[in-house]
């Protein structure tokens, strides 16, 4: 099936993007990435631990196979996000960034106003911007208008594994979007990912539910299958939902007495 996802001119065969946080080891992370079939993985930027300076997780990621998508996690406003994006570009040599501005440490919900401000500046600087946002259809359109490459609305709070709590708003975003919609955050089990893809999401981003599963490698594979199944179902066109039964077997020729 020739069903590529294109973001900013780059084609992806897999519609599952993987976060690299919370793995028990770099080796487990690498094996899970491999099992997921993904082509893009997110990473974060943090200060080097001067006392332990050479713990390098990038060594475990084959940059020829996986596009690195640095995030701006930790940014509390647009200025901090832009600074992190510039540092990430200096590190990767490419200008792709997952823009996230999360001033609230409890729910880690993104600040839409600051995200929009940062997106405007980063697009103007030539960045390919993938913004993490609330499932806010109006904000999604505003971001599209300033030139973001995708929108990435959340299903539920980061790492909460609650699934598609924002379903109704996600449906509107998907209906209206002219850029790819990547459902990000809160997908707890493969059926959540399949559900998002059946709704017409273009891709999903998963981290916690794979990294903290009892068997991350198997869970990565399960998510890959769910994303593929959900995508295929979306393309197949779902049958109509009905309030009452509609017999699958003929309603004629019954064997009845008399």
């Amino acid at each position: 099936m020739n069903d590529k996802l294109t973001i900013a001119g780059r084609d992806f065969t897999s519609r599952l993007f993987i976060g690299t946080g919370k793995y028990a080891s770099n080796e487990m992370m690498a094996r899970s990435i491999e099992a997921s079939g993904t082509e893009m993985v997110t990473v974060a930027l943090r200060r080097v631990d001067i006392g332990n300076p050479n713990d390098d997780m990038l060594a475990a990621i084959d940059r020829d196979r996986y596009l690195l998508l640095p995030n701006t996690s930790g940014a509390r406003d647009a200025e901090e996000a832009v600074r992190l994006a510039r540092l990430a570009r200096a590190a990767t040599g490419i200008a792709w960034v997952k823009l996230e501005v999360t001033p609230d440490p409890y729910y880690l919900l993104p600040d839409g106003a600051e995200t929009l401000r940062a997106a405007e500046r980063l697009v103007a600087e030539g960045f390919v911007v993938l913004p993490y946002i609330q499932a806010d259809p109006v904000l999604a359109k505003r971001l599209e208008d300033v030139g973001t490459a995708t929108v990435m609305p959340l299903a539920s709070p980061i790492g909460s594994n609650q699934g598609l709590k924002t379903r109704a708003s996600l449906e509107i975003i998907i209906e209206q979007a002219t850029v790819p919609v990547v459902v990000d955050a809160g997908l707890g089990v493969p059926s959540h990912a399949a559900d998002a893809m059946e709704m017409g999401a273009d891709a999903v981003l998963v981290n916690t539910s794979i990294a903290t599963a009892a068997d991350p490698v198997a869970m990565a594979r399960a998510f890959a299958m769910a994303v593929e199944a959900g995508r295929m179902a979306w393309l197949a066109g779902r049958a109509a939902e009905r309030r009452i039964a509609s017999a699958s077997s003929p309603l004629t020729g019954f064997l009845r007495n008399g």
Binding site: G21, R46, R47, M57, L58, N71, S73, L87, A90, A91
Partner: peptide, 26 residues
């Protein structure tokens, strides 16, 4: 400071330096 310029970028007393790298993240 671009990596290619590490060798030619001078450091002076009292400057503030940030050294960052990639870590796992979502």
């Amino acid at each position: 400071v671009e990596r290619t310029r590490f060798g030619e970028t001078p450091i002076r007393e009292g400057q503030s330096i940030e050294l960052v790298r990639f870590v796992g993240g979502g």
